[in-house]
Amino acid sequence: LDSSVWIWTNENPVSGQNYPPNTARAFRYTMTLPDGHTSGTATAMIVADDEYSLYINGHFIGTGTVFNVAQQFVADVQGPEIVIAVYAVNTQTAPTPAGVLASIQVVSQDGYCGGCSSTTSVLSGTSWKAFPGTIPSGFEQPGFDDSAWPAAGSEGQNGAPGTRATPALSFATSDWIWTTELSGGTAPVGSRGFRKTFVLPEGKTPASLSIVFAVDDEASLWVNGDQVVTNQVGWTNPAATCVNLYGCQCALLIAFNATNTGGPAGLLVSALVTYTDGSTSPIISDGSWRASTGGIPGGFQNLSFDDSTWALVVTEGGNGVSPWGNIQISGANPPTCPST
């Protein structure tokens, strides 16, 4: 969301105030996929001050009610035109700021070239349309004519009108992972080490790491050698925590001691690094993680440990795959970091 712009209608503010009326407004953007691309997958990150409902090609995708916590949604789409529509509400009883902030990325497939794909990105900005009046019926449908709608007004990039939107943690793009010992959907009984080393972008100073995970069957978590979660059991109630990074300038290490007590085994992770400038980087469980087999060597949780001989993990499918089903994140999201 760092390059997205907060938008709203360009209507006059309430008399004697600097803010727009407290009411609902509609926003639309029509994107066109590259030639030959007719279908794909859309990943949307969106937030609004105060509430929103998101539609893609007329289908309801999701809603949110917290203006400084962005939500991520994933949906299959059909092109070649993709219509993004947002129903947003400024809900407060007194005139207050109002805005929509969004980033949508569509990975589409070429119908003429097997295996060829392309990524098209859309950011909220003045290229969107915004209707400054009662929302017309059917505004979210692809066939709706918005040619008379004026352009949306810009309120500044993420960080305006006053608070930077922090993305919520989501398992939408995470994979269940385990070691190469998986066979027929089951794994040997015992504990295994899992590691993900994240190289921090140049010029960025990390402030905190928010992380949530589900496990089949048990796991403990270390961040840069410090144990932060002990003996989390089961996958139906994911464990979430936030760790202050105290301006660490090095790489970031996430390490798990995960135990299978029998049958299927898996680890599902979503994390978010927040930097001192308010920007963020996501980390998910995927095929880039490394895992030990046959046990866990001493010191595996330390950044200095050499895991180059560990094999890459096996991915077992995304959130929703059997036998675990769709895992929901409850509680504060993202989790609150302890005061320093």
Rank of each mutant, 00 (worst) to 15 (best):
T315I: 06
V107R: 13
Q328Y: 12
V212I: 14
D226S: 15
A172P: 02
T93D: 13
P282W: 02
I82W: 01
V243S: 02
T236L: 14
T274I: 08
G153I: 03
V189R: 10
S117W: 12
A214F: 06
Y87K: 14
V233W: 10
F67C: 08
L272S: 04
P97D: 12
G266P: 01
Q232K: 13
C337V: 01
S39C: 09
P34D: 04
C337Y: 02
G299T: 11
G99D: 00
G125Q: 05
N231D: 15
A291Q: 04
D306R: 03
V215A: 09
E140K: 07
G115M: 02
L252I: 09
G294V: 10
W235A: 08
A88V: 08
E202H: 10
Q72N: 12
D50P: 00
A151C: 08
S174A: 12
I104V: 15
V189A: 10
L268K: 02
A207V: 08
L182D: 15
S339T: 14
C242F: 08
T186N: 14
S108L: 01
I84P: 00
G234P: 00
P334R: 02
N158G: 02
D110F: 01
L245V: 04
F305R: 05
G16D: 10
S281T: 10
Q301E: 14
W310S: 00
D217P: 01
T261Y: 07
H37N: 11
P201S: 04
S220I: 05
P13C: 06
T166A: 12
S39I: 07
G162H: 07
Q227W: 11
A88D: 03
T236Q: 15
P21D: 09
S285K: 01
I56V: 15
N260V: 04
V233M: 10
V83E: 06
P161C: 08
S270V: 01
Y52F: 13
A48E: 02
A172L: 07
D286R: 04
A148R: 11
G320W: 09
G159Q: 01
G234V: 01
V229F: 08
L209F: 03
P238Y: 04
E11F: 07
S308L: 06
S322W: 13
Q78T: 15
I7D: 00
T340N: 15
F256A: 04
T126R: 10
I329N: 03
V269I: 13
G190V: 00
T93E: 14
E140S: 11
A151F: 11
V66D: 13
G159H: 02
G225R: 09
P95C: 06
P13Y: 07
V107Y: 05
A85C: 11
T41G: 07
T9S: 08
G203N: 06
I7T: 01
T163I: 14
